[in-house]
Simulated assay, not measured.
Amino acid sequence: MGAWPALVLAGIFEIGWALGLKYSNGFTKLGPSVLTVLGAVASFWLLSHAMKTLPVGTAYAVWVGIGTVGTATLAVVLFGEPANAARIAGIGLIVAGIVALKLA
């Protein structure tokens, strides 16, 4: 697997484990807790794979950006968090930053 696909997949797993933290209820629910830990391990492993060839600053920022955008977006859908103009603008700025790093 190439570096960029691994990085995107790592970001998707980051979304999963970030949301899993909410569902695990402070690691008091076994199933969600196990899935959260497995998702985190997969995310870090894929990130480390991507960093073999990508610059660390780019890889880390894109990984965090994918996780942030995905988690914030799904939090609106799954947990009813507000979808106000400031949140949407912030997500847009993160996406713009990810695109800029990819093109740099």
Results as ranks from 00 to 15, higher is better:
1 M>C: 03
4 W>D: 00
5 P>F: 04
6 A>K: 02
7 L>P: 00
8 V>R: 10
9 L>P: 00
9 L>T: 14
9 L>C: 08
11 G>Y: 02
13 F>S: 05
14 E>M: 13
14 E>R: 14
14 E>Q: 15
15 I>S: 10
15 I>E: 09
15 I>K: 11
18 A>W: 07
21 L>W: 13
23 Y>L: 12
23 Y>S: 12
23 Y>P: 04
24 S>Q: 13
24 S>E: 14
25 N>V: 03
27 F>H: 14
27 F>Y: 12
28 T>E: 08
28 T>R: 15
29 K>N: 11
29 K>F: 05
29 K>W: 09
30 L>T: 13
30 L>Q: 11
31 G>F: 05
32 P>A: 04
36 T>I: 08
38 L>N: 08
39 G>D: 08
39 G>T: 10
41 V>R: 02
41 V>G: 04
42 A>P: 10
42 A>K: 14
42 A>R: 13
44 F>Y: 15
44 F>Q: 13
46 L>H: 12
47 L>Y: 02
47 L>H: 01
49 H>Q: 09
49 H>D: 00
50 A>Q: 00
52 K>M: 12
53 T>Q: 11
53 T>Y: 02
55 P>N: 15
56 V>A: 05
59 A>K: 00
59 A>N: 13
60 Y>V: 06
60 Y>T: 05
60 Y>R: 07
62 V>Q: 00
67 G>R: 03
67 G>P: 09
69 V>C: 09
69 V>I: 06
69 V>F: 01
71 T>R: 08
72 A>T: 07
72 A>F: 10
73 T>Q: 03
73 T>S: 13
74 L>S: 02
75 A>I: 04
76 V>N: 03
78 L>H: 03
79 F>W: 14
79 F>D: 12
80 G>M: 14
80 G>L: 05
80 G>W: 05
81 E>C: 03
82 P>W: 04
83 A>K: 14
84 N>T: 08
85 A>P: 06
88 I>S: 06
88 I>L: 10
90 G>T: 07
92 G>R: 02
92 G>T: 05
92 G>S: 03
96 A>F: 03
98 I>M: 15
99 V>R: 10
100 A>N: 10
100 A>R: 13
103 L>Q: 07
103 L>H: 08
